[in-house]
Design a binder for these strands. Structure first.
Lengths: 114, 114
DNA sequence: CTTGATGTGCAACCGAACGTTGCAGAAGGT
DNA sequence: ACCTTCTGCAACGTTCGGTTGCACATCAAG
């Protein structure tokens, strides 16, 4: 039952700047590279490159509007990403619980033989 | 109410190879750079570098054992990482739900005026 | 329509990250 | 003592995140 995780999707949200960009698009609605960069500590060009990455993995889509290119979050794809976060979190939690219960079992055995 | 996320911790588990290394250490218990690299598509040296990163953020700790250096997961720190995954997942889920309900409200208003 | 402001796109460049190969050295087994 | 095996260090190449600089498109006035 190995974890089914799309590495590209995960890596896309692994970058702090991209994560903040998604936050911004969710909180303030669709925006352009320029409007996003105003709320971020990086230049417009850096934001543009990140938007290309996000678009490539389908987390974001663009719609040309006049002279500007407006980006919005693809909700279905973001939901998939969230599902993967939860899935990995759940797996690791399960493993951690198992290790903890093993440790407790050993403790018990040790108490018995004391 | 911006998300409180440790970027270093998140970035550490953002790399696919490091995530698999953690998986391996959890599933098969403590191991060395050499044993880990046997289960991974990268060389021992690459694994060593990743172990340095994981050690730096406290996700893993090493105990010298003879000529080899055995690494094991720091469970408390991994639990923190999982908590951050859940936290971001929950935030995004909330925002997605809010957007969805907004969309439905608009639909309703449109139906009324039809 | 021309001018100026604003938004986008492309290219060159830099440092850090991820990966490789090659080699030196330390610790085991026989 | 020897050979195997594991670790550590250094050099190198490529990709990634970020910057600056400049050319080009579009809108709004004058």
């Amino acid at each position: 039952m190995s974890t089914v995780v799309d590495d590209h999707l995960w890596s896309a949200i692994g970058d702090p700047t991209r994560r903040r960009m998604l936050d911004l698009l969710l909180a303030e609605g669709p925006g352009t590279a320029t409007t996003l960069s105003a709320h971020l500590p990086v230049t417009r060009q850096a934001v543009t490159k990140h938007l290309v990455v996000l678009d490539r993995v389908g987390l974001v889509r663009s719609t040309p509007a006049g002279r500007e290119k407006r980006y919005h979050v693809d909700e279905a794809q973001l939901a998939r990403a969230v599902a993967q976060l939860n899935s990995v979190g759940a797996l690791w939690n399960a493993r951690l619980r198992r290790i903890k219960s093993l440790a407790e079992a050993i403790q018990q055995a040790r108490n018995k033989s004391r």
